[in-house]
């Protein structure tokens, strides 16, 4: 941890305000505009599929890379833990169970089977 940057630095303050502004811009603008916004049907349909696509993209980019290297094979413990998570959620519908089962799988592969 470096203390080269601090909150007394105007750059850091502006950056923090920028990220906060991004929160308000993306989350509150449609709420505040209210019923005045009307989307065409195609956009409405696209919005319906967007959450699944966004989450899939984030999850895949997280699981497929280990220290910046693409690793789509059985030697990637994160990828296997993610697949175990999908199976656990499909069967149990439990968020906590999915996280716990995935983490236990990851730790098992990572600490007890370091050859992988």
């Amino acid at each position: 941890m470096t203390d080269l940057l601090s909150a007394t630095d105007p750059y850091v303050w502006l950056a923090i305000l920028g990220v906060t502004a991004a929160t308000f811009i993306t989350r509150s603008s449609l709420f505040v505009l209210g019923a005045r916004v009307q989307f065409p049907p195609v956009v409405e349909a696209a919005l319906r599929f967007a959450p699944a696509c966004a989450l899939a993209a984030i999850v895949a980019a997280d699981l497929a890379f280990v220290e910046g290297q693409l690793r789509i094979d059985l030697s990637n413990p994160k990828l296997i833990a993610g697949c175990v998570g999908i199976v656990i959620f499909s069967i149990t519908r439990s968020i906590i169970g999915t996280i716990a089962g995935g983490m236990i799988t990851f730790w098992f592969l990572h600490f007890w089977l370091p050859v992988l």
Binding site: P51, A52, L55, A56, I58, V59, D62, L63, K78, A81, G82, G85, I86, F89, S90, R93, S94, I95, T98, I99, G102, M103, F106, W107, H110
Partner: peptide, 19 residues
């Protein structure tokens, strides 16, 4: 310990029912 993986697993649980 790779704790950040727990966040990704939470997203997996949100993703599966959407598909």
């Amino acid at each position: 310990w790779g704790l950040e993986l727990a966040g990704t697993l939470a997203l997996v649980a949100l993703l599966v029912p959407l598909c």
